[in-house]
Design a protein around this nucleic acid. Structure first.
Lengths: 160, 160
DNA sequence: CTGCATGCAAACTCTTTGCACCCGC
DNA sequence: GCGGGTGCAAAGAGTTTGCATGCAG
């Protein structure tokens, strides 16, 4: 359940407050971007966002896309992932429970999962090394059972 | 204890066998690269490797570096990490126990850690989604207590 | 001597930057 | 109107690729 009007409004409010408190301007582009992101069902990258906005006739330049994504990441409304090289993938993060990712190396499908034990590990390691842990990234890679997967359970270490 | 002559020899043998079995040539460059990597104490990137080889008067072009890193990754002798954007970091993987990473967002220090619970999570999630899990990446980000750290326990979500 | 491996430089991709113009405050 | 935000295009970094030459088998 990735979509939800109430969250959408709360998120907009959080963003507005953040912009105000940091002397950043409430521009049309910034809200177009936030809106588009929070209507998405899944992960997205900068270019998809660019294309979507163009299609909606609210075009925004790449420079602004990246600028806004950075602002949104800083205020915690989106999360950035580096699953594959040279290609950042983002996802909305407000109202979605913290989770990690399972990725099929065959078809690149991204599955989200939760396991409370991860939090325990995070706490243990933070204490052990006297670190204040701010973020984690846990990603499992494997092959899925999808019929359409190019790489059905066949061992193939290549295309990751 | 990241260094060890016995491992060094075994690794060389594994690599030779791999090359033979895959009709790949045993070139001087490939062995220079493997040697250099397995003499390193820590993580490295393509450019560091390039510089090291140049300094040792066994220069190898970037193209060959990347080519060989890919071969080594495929045969499981090194592991590739994407801790930060647009910048792959590698580490030798034979003879070093499986571990995960803790990274300081202030000074980029990389610390290795082990926690057996991660393996359990991996197994659970694999069963749950019927995935054959081949690899995982767990990285925790935070701020360290190093005196020299540019970012001593001060909240700073920026430079990741 | 055959053809994979290498070196070089150019191409590529994603992202960032410089600068003139625009618009929120 | 001031100063940050935007769009555009060009620059940048890391990595990949094309092609001629070199060397392993």
């Amino acid at each position: 359940m990735r979509n939800n009007t109430r969250n959408h409004n709360i998120v907009k409010e959080i963003f507005e407050n953040y912009l105000e408190n940091n002397q950043l301007r409430k521009t049309k582009s910034r809200f177009s971007i936030l809106d588009t992101i929070y209507k998405l069902e899944s992960h997205f990258d900068a270019d998809e966002l660019f294309q979507l906005l163009k299609k909606k006739s609210e075009p925004v330049s790449k420079a602004t896309i990246y600028n806004t994504l950075e602002v949104l990441e800083t205020c915690g409304l989106i999360r950035k992932h580096l699953f594959t090289k040279n290609h950042a993938v983002y996802e909305p993060s407000y109202g979605f429970s913290q989770h990690d990712h399972l990725i099929c190396t065959g078809c690149n499908k991204i599955i989200e999962f939760c396991d409370p034990r991860i939090q325990a590990i995070q706490t243990t390691i933070g204490k052990l090394f006297n670190f204040q842990i701010e973020e984690r990234s846990l990603t499992l890679y494997g092959t899925c059972i999808d019929q359409a997967c190019k790489n059905k359970h066949i061992d193939n270490k290549q295309n990751k």
